[in-house]
Simulated assay, not measured.
Amino acid sequence: MKSEKTILIDSRWAGNTGIGRLYQEVINYAPSALSYEYVESKMGLGNLLTPLMLGEEIKKSNADVFYSPSFMPPAFSKIPFIFTVHDLMHLFYYSKLHKIYYEQIIARLAKKAQKIITVSHFSKNQLVDILGIPDALIKVIYNGVDGHFLENNEEYESDHPYFLYVGNRRKNKNIPAMLTAFANAKIPNEFMFYLSGNPDSELEPLINSLGIQKRVRFLGFIEEQDLPKLYKGAHATLFASLMEGFGLPVIESMASGTPVLTSSTSSLPEIAGGAALCVDPTEVSAIQTGIEKLVNDEVFYVECVLKGLERAREFSWEKTAKETWDTILSKSF
């Protein structure tokens, strides 16, 4: 007779992304009293047939519950399933097909879940208001911040003070507006703007037209272990996104003792918790004024450092993982 409970996990999400980070931390803190199986299919993460594939994986498994760290639920399931919806970006910043798929397929399947986890109250409200998911079905569990950010004392070696952006180049990230605000800001020319990733064909013409070629540096792929000192060395982090479900760079930067300029919209004020400078991301002049304030107002700058450190200590991956496993196991068996 089977004694220990078995969890089937969609491990395809492992990798160097925000979702991959959540997955890894949840697995790191997995209860030892359980046994685990993993989805065997190598189907691509964006494949529209993923729900059918997950249903088949569940059908052939002896697991008691299915868990996925991201938005794809199974099309059918003989066991309870729990999955995480980080945001509804697909409805706003992807193709029309993505929007239809999310509204007609994902939303309908989601209502069959035992529980849906999301990463902010902003995202929860969107799930309820836009997709019609019942409020009681949704559990908000914040992402965490690694203790290395709080403990690190090393700084990235730079010949100039710099602002930092960490993230991808999707439209919601609002990078052109941040570059324009940086170029217009009345701050010393010694200040640089460092961005993760490589140069791309969309940003380079803008950078050239703004005349800041020598003040912008692309850092390429950044290894996870290098992030703390990169944040630590920055004068401030710029993260004025148009929409975020959570925004990991906000708390990673604050945990590093580095002030954050972020948006006054979506989940970002919620996550910042009054410890960051929040501006209207649709107004380049507002971002510009914020950059100038972080350079010229020393008292405000120090307040941001202290408040940010205090706020960051409220987040931990151990707490995130514990709440996630409590949700997975609650009434599952």
Rank of each mutant, 00 (worst) to 15 (best):
E4G: 10
K5W: 14
I7M: 10
L8S: 10
I9M: 01
S11Y: 10
W13Y: 13
R21I: 06
E25A: 04
V26T: 11
I27E: 13
L45M: 12
E56R: 15
K59P: 14
N62L: 13
A63K: 08
S68D: 01
P69L: 03
M72A: 14
M72S: 14
P73A: 01
F76M: 10
K78Q: 09
P80N: 06
T84W: 05
Y93C: 11
H98E: 12
I100Q: 09
Y102D: 09
R108D: 14
L109N: 01
I116S: 07
S120C: 00
F122C: 08
L127F: 12
L131C: 03
G132V: 06
D135E: 06
A136C: 08
I138V: 01
Y142S: 05
N143R: 03
E157V: 13
D159R: 11
Y162P: 00
Y165Q: 00
V166R: 07
G167H: 13
R169L: 10
R170Q: 12
R170T: 08
N172Y: 10
A177D: 13
K186R: 11
I187L: 04
E190M: 02
E190G: 02
F191I: 11
M192H: 11
S201H: 13
L206I: 02
R215Y: 02
L219G: 06
L219E: 04
E223A: 14
E224P: 03
L227G: 09
L230K: 07
G233D: 01
F239R: 06
S241A: 12
L242F: 02
M243F: 12
M243E: 14
F246Y: 14
P249A: 07
M254S: 12
M254P: 09
P259T: 08
V260R: 01
T265W: 10
S267Y: 09
E270Y: 02
G274F: 15
A275N: 03
C278V: 05
T282H: 13
Q288L: 03
Q288M: 00
V302T: 14
L306Y: 14
E310M: 15
E310H: 14
A312I: 07
R313T: 08
E314I: 12
F315A: 05
W317R: 04
K319C: 08
T320I: 00
T320A: 05
A321H: 00
K322M: 06
W325V: 01
I328S: 05
I328F: 03
S332P: 05
S332I: 07
